[in-house]
Design a binder for these strands. Structure first.
Lengths: 339, 339
DNA sequence: TTGTAAGCGTTATCAT
DNA sequence: ATGATAACGCTTACAA
C-alpha cells in the first residue's frame, strides 16, 4: 500500500517549496533550469500524479460529465453512451454513467448525487416514469444551480435547455409512406404503454401519413404494449381480430417479438404483413426475416450531445440561449418489407 | 447562475462560525438547540448541499467506483453494469463507467484518469487487446497505489486480486455433453480470433467433453471468427466442407449469425444442426429459432463484484488475501437444440 | 529564481 | 455551547 506521492512530499524531499515544485512540474519558466530538471526527474521516478480531486476543488471544475440513461440494455442507449464517451474522452472529460431504470426516484437520487460537485454538466434522457409524472423539479433545481444540461432523445418541452433529438414524427411518417407506396392499407401501430414523448411523436407521424393518404384511422389498429413481459396471446389476438398488412413498431424489441409471434400463426413476413421498427440495433439485423428499421444514429446523437455540453461548460458567458439539434433518422431496408 | 451555497456563506449570514454550522448540520449535540434550529432552517431554505469534492479531499474517499468494460453494446456487459449499479447505489456509491473499446491504450488511459483520486476502487474486465499483449503493468501500478481492484469475467492469472468469473470450461463441457446425449457426434466450436482467456476456457471444456466421449478431435471443426464483419462465405464454406451436426459458439452474436447463414443454405436448425451459444441475451431469445444459450448471470456477477469491492474498500486492514468467486452458468434450453 | 500565503469546502481537534 | 485552527493537495498572486 504505497500511498500516492504529493507535491508536499517532493518539496520536502528536495528541500524546496511546494510552489516551486508545482511550477517546475508545469514547466514554468519562472523556475531555474537545474531545479526544474531535478524536480521533474524526481517526480517521474516516484511516478507523481496530480490529485484530480484537489484540482477539482481548486478549479471548481471536475472534467466529469454525468450521464443519466433510462436503461442500459437497449441498444440505442448503449450507442449513445458510446458516442458521448468518444467525444468526452477525446476532450479530456470522464463520463459518469448512471441508470435510472425508468424510475423517477432513481433519476432524482442519481442527479442529486452527481450535482453536488461531482460533475460539470449533465447529459440525460428522461425515464418513462418521469415523463408520466410530468414532474421536472429536480431538473429545474440542477439548472438553477447553474449546471449545464443537455437532453437527448426523451426530452421535454417543459424545460428550456439544449436538446438533441431525432425527427421522430417525420421518420414514422416516412415509414408509413413506404407501406402505402408498396400497396399496404391496413397499417397498424405498436407502441409503448407508458407515456413517452418520443412514442407520441411517432404516433403523430403515423396518423399524419394515414390522413394524407386518405386512409381511415382506426383506433383498434393501435396496440399498446408493456416494456417487458409481452403477452404472446395479446399480440396474436390483435393480429387475428384485425386485418393488418403492415406494422410500425416504436422499438425493435416490439417489432422482433411481434414478428415471431405472428409467424408462429402461419402468417408470412413480409408477404402477408410488413414490419418496420425504430432502432436499428443488433436485433433488427439478426432477426428472421431481418427487420427494416429506422436508424436513430445513437452514436452521432451522443457525440452531438457531448459537444453541446462541453461547449456550454467551457463558454465563460452564461447566455440563456438554447439549441435544439434535430438529427435525421434514416430508414434501413431489410427483408421485413417489400417494395 | 445561482452558485451553490457553502458552510461559509451560512456562517457569515447567520453570524456564527463555520464549525458551528458544520456541527449543527450534523445534528451534533455540542450545539445549542436554538442555534441548531436556526442553522438547519436556513440551510434547508437555501437548499444547502455539502460539496462532494471537498468531502472527498478531506476523507480521501470518493464513494465512486470505477468500472472499465471492453464494450457496451454486448448484452452481457450491460447486465453486469446494471448489477454493479444495483449494489453500489444501494450502498451509497456512484458508478463511473468507462469503455475500453477492446483497446489496450484506451484501457490504460481510462484507468490512469480514474486512478488519480476519482475513485475508491476498480471493477473491470480486460480488453481483448490487453489479453493479447499480455501486458498488465497498468493494473499492477494501480494495485501498488493501494487501490482495490476486482476483475470480472475476463480476468488474468498474472494478477493476484479479487475475481468473479463463471465456470466457463464446465459450462462448455455441459453444452457439448448435451449435444452428445442427443446423438450428435460432429460437433464444431466457433470461437473468437483474439486471444481471450474466457474463449480458451470454453475451448478446453469443449475438447474435454469430446475426449471423454471418445470423439475424435478434429482441428477443422474449430472456426475462429473476428468480432465484427463476419464473412458469410467463410461461415458457409466451413459448414459445407465439414459434416457438422452441432455447434457451440462462444457468444450469442456468433451463434445467431451463423444460424442465419446456414439456414439460408437450406440446412434445418435444430434438425440438421443444433446450436448452443454463450450469453443468454435478447438476441438468443428473439432469434429464429430461439437459441439454446448459456446464461452467464451478468447481473449477479456485477452485484457480486461490487460487493467484493465495497468490502475491500471499507475494510480497514489491507490484508493480502484475495477471493475468487466462481458463479455457475446455467443452460437455457430453447428451440435450437433437441433432446 | 524561489518562497509565502491564501484559498477551494469540509471536518476534526483543541481551545475558550 | 461556540469558535479558531489545521489539514486534505493543489494553484496562484504576491513577496523576497
Amino acid at each position: 500500500m504505497k500511498k500516492q506521492i504529493t507535491l508536499k512530499d517532493i518539496a520536502k524531499e528536495l528541500d524546496v517549496s511546494i510552489s516551486t515544485v508545482s511550477k517546475a512540474l508545469k514547466n514554468s519558466d519562472e523556475i531555474g533550469h537545474d531545479t526544474k530538471e531535478k524536480i521533474q526527474a524526481f517526480a517521474k521516478l516516484y511516478n507523481y500524479r496530480p490529485n484530480n480531486i484537489a484540482i477539482s476543488l481548486k478549479n471548481k471544475r471536475t472534467r466529469n460529465i454525468g450521464v443519466i440513461i433510462p436503461n442500459i440494455v437497449h441498444y440505442f442507449f448503449a450507442t449513445v453512451v458510446r458516442g458521448i464517451e468518444n467525444f468526452a474522452n477525446a476532450h479530456g472529460y470522464n463520463v459518469i454513467v448512471c441508470v435510472s431504470d425508468e424510475s423517477f426516484d432513481k433519476e432524482v437520487i442519481n442527479m442529486e448525487m452527481l450535482a453536488n460537485g461531482s460533475i460539470d454538466g449533465f447529459i440525460m434522457s428522461l425515464s418513462s416514469e418521469t415523463q408520466l409524472k410530468n414532474d421536472y423539479n429536480h431538473i429545474r433545481e440542477v439548472m438553477d444551480q447553474g449546471i449545464p444540461l443537455v437532453f437527448f432523445d426523451r426530452a421535454t418541452d417543459e424545460i428550456d435547455c439544449d436538446k438533441v433529438i431525432i425527427n421522430d414524427r417525420e421518420a414514422a411518417y416516412q415509414a408509413v409512406n413506404k407501406f402505402v407506396n408498396s400497396g399496404r392499407k391496413r397499417i397498424a401501430l405498436i407502441t409503448s404503454e407508458n407515456f413517452l414523448n418520443v412514442s407520441d411523436e411517432r404516433a403523430k407521424g403515423y396518423f399524419q401519413a394515414l390522413r394524407e393518404h386518405g386512409i381511415e384511422i382506426a383506433e383498434n389498429l393501435v396496440l399498446k404494449l408493456p416494456y417487458i413481459d409481452i403477452d404472446e396471446k395479446v399480440v396474436q389476438k390483435f393480429f387475428s381480430q384485425n386485418k393488418i398488412d403492415a406494422v410500425l413498431c416504436v422499438n425493435e424489441v416490439f417489432a422482433v417479438q411481434c414478428m415471431r409471434f405472428v409467424q408462429k400463426t402461419g402468417i408470412k413476413v413480409p408477404e402477408d404483413i410488413s414490419f418496420i421498427g425504430f432502432t436499428d440495433g443488433l436485433l433488427s439485423k439478426y432477426a428472421t426475416p431481418s427487420l427494416t428499421a429506422i436508424n436513430q444514429h445513437g452514436e452521432d446523437m451522443g457525440e452531438m450531445a457531448a459537444k453541446m455540453l462541453v461547449e456550454k461548460i467551457e463558454s465563460e458567458a452564461d447566455e440563456d440561449t438554447y439549441r435544439i439539434e434535430i438529427l435525421k433518422a434514416t430508414l434501413v431496408e431489410r427483408e421485413s418489407t417489400v417494395n
